[in-house]
Computed example of a mutant assay.
Amino acid sequence: MYAGAALENSWSLADVGISFCSTLKCFVKEEDKPTLYVFNAVTQEKMLIMESISLLGKKVSELRTLLSLRCGFPVSVFCLRTPRGLEMFDCNTLKDYQTDIGTVLYA
């Protein structure tokens, strides 16, 4: 922070007007960001998946079960697709599809 304002990561200190020998207040800002997003084609809503990062190492079938419990659709009536449209198979892990934090999957 400088002069009571939060500084953004992309800003240059000189551009903001911070001069030599100025005092900056540093702090850790924690944000809860979803591990994954899943766009539901039926409801046209993006569901936030706030599970731990370990979810990315689990099988696709486990994520589909979690989604089934959340949206109420049976697991047998939907499949998951990658951002490129590739169908995700239950026996593979999410990492097999290069799924990373913040990825949007499609159901």
Rank of each mutant, 00 (worst) to 15 (best):
Y2V: 14
Y2K: 12
Y2D: 08
A3H: 08
A3Y: 06
A5I: 06
A6Q: 11
E8C: 08
E8L: 08
N9Q: 07
N9R: 11
S10P: 02
W11A: 04
W11I: 03
A14D: 05
A14P: 00
D15T: 08
D15A: 14
V16I: 15
F20G: 00
C21Q: 02
C21R: 11
S22G: 00
T23A: 00
K25I: 10
K25F: 14
C26A: 15
F27K: 14
F27E: 09
K29C: 11
K29A: 14
E30A: 12
E31N: 13
E31K: 07
T35N: 10
Y37R: 12
F39A: 12
N40R: 13
N40F: 10
A41Y: 13
A41N: 11
T43H: 11
T43G: 15
Q44P: 01
Q44Y: 09
L48F: 11
L48Q: 15
L48M: 15
I49E: 04
I49S: 11
M50G: 00
M50P: 00
E51D: 12
S52P: 02
S54F: 04
L55P: 07
L55T: 07
L55V: 04
L56G: 14
G57K: 02
K58S: 07
K59H: 13
S61G: 01
R64A: 11
T65G: 03
L66V: 04
L67A: 02
L69Y: 12
R70C: 08
R70A: 08
R70P: 01
R70Q: 07
C71G: 11
C71N: 09
C71L: 03
C71E: 05
F73Y: 13
P74C: 07
P74N: 06
P74M: 05
S76A: 10
S76C: 06
V77W: 04
V77D: 10
C79I: 03
C79F: 07
C79W: 00
R81K: 15
R81E: 04
R81D: 01
R84Q: 11
R84Y: 10
L86F: 03
L86A: 09
L86V: 10
E87N: 00
E87A: 01
M88N: 03
M88H: 05
M88Y: 02
M88G: 01
F89T: 10
D90K: 12
C91I: 03
T93C: 04
T93V: 02
T93H: 01
L94T: 05
K95T: 11
D96M: 05
D96H: 03
D96K: 01
Y97E: 01
Y97T: 00
Y97G: 01
Q98L: 03
Q98N: 13
Q98D: 06
Q98W: 02
T99D: 01
G102L: 10
T103R: 09
V104G: 03
A107H: 12
